[in-house]
């Protein structure tokens, strides 16, 4: 514990000694994490839209007028047993009429003096939007089904495009994570070079390998987390500005996650960025520390040992 406190103080004094250098390192990591954060926001938004649109996609199967209620309920049971079916709702002719009247209060169908003007239907929700097309094909050929309506081709295409965008976004985020890790690795590499005398002294006076590594790991985690905090704050400010701008336009209706839940998005993003920043900082610096310090000590010794064994 005493050693860790000493190492932490050493790390702080090293930060203070090379203020300008560390500031530029910090800016470099912050920019990487900022770009990463912006992509995360876009991904979160895309995922929300995809889910919302996807969950609203239903299959409406309109029943033939010859089907009795018993027959329809039997069909409902059959459908509920099918793979990829989440739930099935039965809408009788009178229910359909009531809904229609509620939606169109100015149009009076009472003159027809009949409540069987609209067909009964089964409303099917799939477990995932990608199964809708397949389910529709199967239901269409079922006896008693007269007509089928489900998410239009445009919506289906929209979902496909969203899926592609989410995939591209995921790959980009992975690449940005690698880029951030290599930024931190470079920083630690330069830091090791700048402190090579100190490392040599540590080795000579009997510091353990972990004791030598810790200050650099502190540094990696420090840059990762501070970069994440600054990047999160910048993104928060951008989200606030955007949501204010969107409130003035009708886009808020189309993109509800922007206008309505900026706080939630920010909390998720900040937690994600902090965890990613800390982890990438730790493992990025650990990799570099092992590479550089290993190259000067253990690896050389191991190479020598191999030569000895092969003699």
């Amino acid at each position: 514990m005493r050693s860790m406190l000493f190492l932490f103080r050493e790390f702080l004094s090293s930060l203070a000694l090379n203020r300008f250098l560390h500031f530029t390192y910090g800016v470099q990591v912050t920019i990487s994490l900022l770009v990463l954060g912006i992509f995360l926001v876009l991904m979160l938004g895309a995922a929300v839209i995809w889910n919302r649109v996807g969950n609203n996609l239903l299959i409406h199967a309109y029943m033939s007028s010859t089907m009795t209620e018993t027959g329809i309920l039997q069909l409902k049971n059959e459908l509920e047993q099918m793979d990829h079916v989440h739930d099935v709702e039965y809408r009788s002719q009178s229910d359909a009429l009531a809904i229609w009247e509620a939606k169109n209060p100015h149009m009076d169908l009472g003159i027809l003096e009949s409540d069987d003007i609209l067909p009964a239907s089964l409303i099917i929700r799939a477990t995932h939007p990608r199964y809708i097309q397949g389910l529709a094909e199967q239901i269409k050929s079922m006896p008693g089904v007269e007509e089928l309506r489900y998410g239009s081709e445009m919506v289906q295409n929209f979902l496909k495009v969203m899926m592609i965008l989410i995939s591209i976004g995921a790959v980009t985020i992975l690449l940005l994570l690698v880029f951030t890790a290599s930024s931190i690795s470079n920083i630690i590499g330069m830091s090791i070079y700048a402190r090579r005398t100190e490392i040599r002294i540590m080795q000579l006076v009997g510091a353990t390998w972990w004791f030598i590594r810790w200050p650099f790991l502190f540094e990696g985690v420090f840059f990762g987390t501070v970069g994440a905090i600054v990047a999160s704050l910048i993104i928060w400010a951008l989200l606030l500005m955007m949501s204010e701008a969107l409130k003035l336009s009708e886009l808020t209706l189309a993109l509800p996650y922007f206008g309505l839940n900026t706080g939630g998005i920010f909390v998720v993003l900040a937690l994600l960025l902090l965890s990613l920043g800390g982890l990438v900082g730790f493992f990025g610096s650990l990799r570099t520390v092992n590479t550089f310090l290993g190259r000067e000590t253990e690896v050389n010794l191991d190479a020598l040992r191999v030569r000895q064994l092969t003699r």
Binding site: G206, E298, N300, L301, R305, R307, Q308, R311
Partner: peptide, 27 residues
């Protein structure tokens, strides 16, 4: 460094057989 041939004993220990984690305590 460790010898590529022969043996070096310090404090009656063969330094080539020393484990990496023992080196700081040796030093």
């Amino acid at each position: 460094a460790i010898p590529t041939s022969g043996k070096v004993f310090v404090f009656n220990k063969d330094i080539a057989k020393m484990r990496i984690r023992e080196i700081p305590f040796h030093r």
